[in-house]
Computed example of a mutant assay.
Amino acid sequence: MEQSERGLEILKELNETVVPEGMLAVWFLGQNSVLLKGDGNKIVCIDPYLDPAPYRVFAPPFQAELLTNIDYVCISHDHSDHLDPYAVEAIAKVNNQTKFIAPAYCNDQLQECGVSPENIVKADTNLEWCTTDVKIKAIPAAHEEFEYSPEDGHRFVGYILDWNGVKVYHAGDTVIFPKLVETLRKEAIDLALLPINGRDFFRNEREIVGNMDVREAAELAVAAGVDTMIPLHYDMFAGNSEKPGRIIDYFYENYPMQKCHVCARFERFIYVSREALKGK
């Protein structure tokens, strides 16, 4: 696989983008994959899916081994479009300092991909923070249902980052459950990255586990008091997709003051918090 022209631009942007306090840079790579950059030139990659598989709707923007400057990789669960063995192996190979935060269910697979045990951080939902230089915490997710064991904890997680004066929630794969709204409201989330592809009987029959749908994601953003919402998980597989314009229509018709941004493919989006420009 060769990197695209836009892929080369992304790699250049990752190195050159300077992110002031109260802001965060987000690159959307498709499906649930995002790159985040804040202060200290640190970069976090969540659910990198860069395998050039033939069943993708579109090719990844670059080869995973070109991501040489990733500080943290956050994995929400062990499905291959979230824990992509190709991407994990490549990132681990080119930077032996990268830390991989993931549920304990992922440990064996991460090590099979060449991640050293000392570079694996358990996504323990009982901890206040899994890491502290970039403050990252794991919270439970219900990929239609919870899966939990006393030994390994939750199989599915989302992540909250408190970084550079911005609170970000990346949901991973999840439906809405009773405590989620309360948790997000207490966290005062600025930017929520939410799946919108939904679920139904026929996809379940094909063993495709689902997520919240467009209406649920929109209502979650509003109920939780999220400042800005970005939809994810709608564009990669023909049989498990959604049209992101539907969430724009839903907000326009029901909550016209709610901010939502649909990222263009491989776009760099700069989030500016409500506090960033005060007193400037």
Rank of each mutant, 00 (worst) to 15 (best):
M1R: 12
E2N: 07
S4D: 08
E5L: 14
I10T: 01
E13N: 13
L14T: 01
N15L: 09
E21P: 04
M23R: 15
L24E: 08
G30F: 01
Q31W: 13
N32V: 04
S33I: 03
V34N: 02
L35E: 02
K37M: 10
I43L: 02
C45H: 03
I46L: 13
L50D: 03
D51L: 07
A59F: 08
P60Q: 11
P60N: 11
T68E: 13
N69S: 13
Y72C: 04
V73I: 10
S76D: 01
S76Q: 01
H77R: 04
S80G: 08
D81I: 06
D81S: 09
Y86M: 07
A87Y: 00
V88R: 01
V88P: 00
E89M: 14
A92K: 00
N95L: 02
Q97M: 05
T98G: 10
T98R: 03
T98N: 08
I101K: 00
A104L: 15
N107I: 10
N107G: 05
L110G: 03
C113G: 07
C113M: 10
G114Y: 13
V115L: 09
S116C: 05
S116D: 11
S116H: 06
S116I: 03
V121Q: 04
D124S: 06
N126G: 15
L127R: 15
L127D: 09
T132G: 04
T132K: 12
K135S: 12
I136P: 00
I139H: 08
A141G: 13
H143Y: 14
E144N: 02
E145K: 11
E145A: 07
E147T: 14
P150W: 04
E151S: 09
G153F: 07
F156M: 02
V157P: 05
I160V: 14
I160N: 02
W163M: 10
N164V: 02
V168Q: 03
H170V: 12
H170M: 06
A171V: 11
V175E: 04
V175R: 03
V175H: 03
K179N: 13
L180V: 06
E182A: 10
T183W: 04
A188Q: 14
L191Y: 15
L191I: 14
A192N: 08
L193T: 04
L194H: 09
N197Q: 07
G198Q: 02
R199Q: 12
F202G: 05
R203K: 14
V209M: 11
N211Y: 06
A221C: 13
V226Q: 02
T228P: 06
T228W: 06
T228I: 12
T228Q: 08
M229R: 01
M229V: 15
P231H: 10
D235S: 02
F237R: 01
F237C: 05
A238C: 05
G239C: 09
S241R: 04
E242K: 02
P244E: 09
Y250K: 08
F251W: 10
F251Y: 15
N254C: 08
Y255V: 11
Y255I: 12
P256W: 11
P256C: 09
A264N: 14
R265K: 15
R265W: 03
E267A: 15
R268T: 13
F269R: 07
V272D: 08
S273Y: 08
R274F: 04
E275Q: 12
A276M: 10
L277R: 12
K278C: 11
